[in-house]
Design a protein around this nucleic acid. Structure first.
Lengths: 402, 402
DNA sequence: CACGTTTGTGCTGCAATGCAACAAAATGCG
DNA sequence: CGCATTTTGTTGCATTGCAGCACAAACGTG
């Protein structure tokens, strides 16, 4: 039987929804006054002010100190508001095959403390890996920071269901483990946690990086040895029925020696082909990139095939998902800027009808992408107040005395 | 600048949300009592009763007359509630290439009056076609029914944007017309209207037909001359960035004489191939279906190729969209039941990993699908009270006297 | 028939918003 | 400089809608 309780609302929920909307508006819109906020939210100025004073009391919002450039407009100028970066802290960690990457973001989603530690993920038991990740993440936190920590997010290259049970993680050698439970137990009590597939986390992070673009459909590719992907719709991850949506790596590609995209544009194929024609020493991705940049014919040929196959897969994706933005991530995506024209050419050729092609951009968050994305998911959850922490806090504050 | 007003809420909106949740719960859950409703919505029994008495006053809900089979449980039995079928009426119309199909559904989404009228859509100006559609739809409505009409939905084979502007409709010969505006003007004042692509409407209708399954991801294919498609996520149409999501017809298919799915499994190819080997007279789809059923070798070969190409495209779609349910519609889908085993076989072969394949079912709503879907979209909108009609009504009623 | 259980319905209290009024702070004009 | 005008932030009051409580009604059980 379906549960409709999420649709119903009571006064408490009304307040919660409005507080959440206020936080999101300030996060997205930067600095605005109480009156601006009231207009954006469709509330009365008094309600807006009421909500803001609660948020200031909670230490989540503050008035901008420096006087803004006079807006040269009649009327009393509003006091601009902004989020307090230290108002909350979210930890994002990625357990990769070779490293553990940990970072923290604040309430404004700015990254504050990145650390990358070598770690052999191929032969580590789950519990050990998670313990290590937690240790690394908490290591740098000064006393007092932990209390403000509103979440711990873990990204791993594993296929897992919605509740955080890993079905299989070939790269890490995990199988049928309840990663969510293990993570919960490894953490100090009271810290909300979250586990997510690394490609999905990366996708959220890339969509989150540009605040203004949270609306719309973003398709994110992560191109390494394999090709992962994720779809973000209006800021929310689209998982599909089995959590496999966006797994573009297994799309069929014709005209290639191999059947799947993963094999046609992945790192392995590039290096295999490059091995015979490398200009200097070992065949590495960096070497290939350099050769393409220098327009060495053999390398350019490899890059152009890569572009053709990528373009084909992207067109297929456009026809099914119709994103308005495609983000290319992973180390191999470094090839894209040099062949972006080829990719666009092939896509236009394949798109018989003259429909607008989506914007294609390179990733913004480099290697920390997945960890950043995991932290962003917590941040997002916090701003929508799905956590009970703030709610309880706000109720606890004696608010009537004001 | 984004608009966050939809997130904020006032007491009025609280009521609206709760009334909407109540309607949806009764629609989905069939018959339940005030107390059941209160539990499902997480409200107090008194609030639930309050809402119900408003809805009864509005004529949207009533108490079930016949005594239900005694539930043999201690305690006072609850009075079961149900929607009043005549409480509201929604009209759905499809302007096709050869027919105009009109029907009405009531508050319980049951179809009440279907009429199919021959109409040559290929050479009809927009305004004329819409006028004709409105006339056909309103023709059968008895006086008094029109007042209860809460919406008019129009489905056409046209590519249009979110606001109902048709970009191009090759089959109907339309181009750059504001179909939404034309429809609004053709209707009596005060009736909310809606225009939608026929495949999209069909998709919504198929997802709506099974009430329990409104959650989840459904991929709908409409296979005729061309192949259209739509994706429904949790009961909502997923349009993508440009309203082209789910357009599976242009997916690439290998091993076929032609590059696109539309040409590989569409009606044209089937009839072309069948023309040489037809057992009886003209090559028609009905004839092909009969021959396949009789296991005529040539026809079976055609059907098996069809199954292989369909399976390939569906696997591609699964990898990107990962639906948990696929609905096959259109006349050509009649071929599916005879080759469902082949389709499943090919899909399992192509799915290297042993991930669960989605359930594949035949359409339920036959030819009336698109018109039904358009009506369902209005029904859905009505139940979520996005229309102002009921809200105004409810406010108008003097409620304090109760 | 008494008792427990569940439902439906009033009544009161509370939470959150909207409205109106007012002081504050800035611009613009004479 | 003084004053009208405009916009902001705050405060008191009314309104709305839900929760909690109590109570009568309806049903099964011993």
């Amino acid at each position: 039987m379906s549960d409709f309780s999420s649709l119903s609302s009571s006064p408490r929920r009304v307040r919660q929804a409005n507080v959440a909307a206020a936080l999101q508006a300030i996060f997205a819109g930067g600095q605005l006054s109480r009156a601006d906020l009231a207009r954006q939210l469709g509330l009365n100025r008094s309600s807006s002010g009421n909500i803001i004073s609660e948020l200031i009391g909670n230490g989540l919002v503050r008035e901008v100190a420096e006087d803004a450039p006079k807006p040269t407009r009649a009327g009393r100028p509003g006091i601009l508001l902004e989020l307090v970066p230290e108002g909350a802290c979210f930890i994002g960690v990625e357990i990769g095959v070779e490293h553990i990457t940990a970072l923290r973001i604040g309430l404004t989603a700015e990254v504050s403390d990145v650390r990358v530690v070598p770690f052999d993920g191929r032969h580590a038991p789950v519990a050990e890996a998670v313990d290590r990740a937690v240790a690394i993440a908490l290591e740098g936190a000064a006393s007092g920071e932990i209390e403000r920590c509103e979440g711990f997010g873990l990204a791993t290259p594993a296929q897992m269901d919605r509740r955080g049970r890993v079905r299989i993680a070939p790269l890490l050698g995990w199988r049928d483990v309840d990663l969510a439970a293990i993570t919960r137990e490894a953490l100090p009590a009271g810290i909300p946690s979250l586990v997510e597939n690394d490609a999905n986390a990366f996708a959220i992070g890339e969509a989150y990086a540009s605040r203004g673009r949270q609306r719309g459909v973003t398709l994110v590719l992560v191109i390494e040895s394999g090709v992962g992907g994720g779809i973000v719709i209006d800021g929310q991850l689209f998982r599909g029925g089995n959590g496999l949506a966006g797994e573009i790596g297994h799309i069929h590609v014709p005209d290639a020696d191999c059947a799947e995209l993963e094999e046609a544009i992945g790192l392995e194929l590039l290096l295999n082909r490059y091995r015979g024609v490398a200009t200097a020493g070992d065949a590495t991705l960096a070497g290939l990139l350099a050769d393409v940049r220098d327009r060495a014919p053999a390398a350019v040929a490899i890059a152009e095939d890569w572009a053709r196959h990528l373009a084909f897969a992207l067109v297929q994706a456009c026809r099914l998902v119709d994103p308005d933005r495609i983000v290319l991530g992973g180390s191999v995506a470094g090839l894209y800027p040099m062949v972006s024209a080829r990719v666009a050419f092939h896509m236009e050729t394949l798109q018989a009808d003259s429909f607008p092609l989506p914007e294609i951009v390179l990733h913004e968050a480099a290697e920390t992408g997945a960890a950043y994305g995991a932290a962003c998911m917590l941040h997002q959850r916090f701003l929508s107040l799905e956590n009970d922490l703030l709610a309880g806090d706000a109720m606890g504050k004696d608010w009537g005395s004001l």
